[in-house]
């Protein structure tokens, strides 16, 4: 399944909850959650760990808007809204960790 996260991991536990509960599948970071996809952040190790179980994506327009498109952790795939649509279509269900 697809897990969609929209909160900064430094301000909210959504990412932790998703990684704790989620079994496997795809994670898409959108809106303020893109901060989790940036290298050098306190959450980088957590994201790298999660790559074993999940494939991790971050929404490029949200990264660009926040000035962080050039700092994406290696192994995180950036996608546009069309890629977002493809991820939703490719997974049977999706959960928004609001």
């Amino acid at each position: 399944m697809l897990h969609i996260i929209n909160k900064s991991p430094l301000a909210n536990s959504s990412l932790d909850s998703c990684l704790g509960v989620g079994k496997e599948g795809d994670i898409l970071l959108i809106e303020d959650a893109i901060y989790a996809a940036t290298s050098g952040s306190a959450h980088e190790a957590k994201i790298r760990d999660a790559m074993g179980r999940f494939k991790i994506y971050a929404l490029l327009p949200d990264l660009e808007a926040r000035g962080l498109a050039d700092r994406v952790i290696e192994g995180v795939t950036t996608v546009g809204y069309d890629g977002f649509v493809e991820l939703v279509a490719a997974n049977r269900t999706c959960q928004s960790w609001l």
């Binding site: 399944m1 509960v21 079994k23 049977r92 269900t93 999706c94 959960q95 928004s96 609001l98």
Partner: peptide
């Protein structure tokens, strides 16, 4: 809980 979530058809979160 994660396994149960995988079994669902529609997930709604508020």
């Amino acid at each position: 809980m994660g396994e149960l979530m995988e079994e669902q058809d529609v997930l709604l979160s508020f």
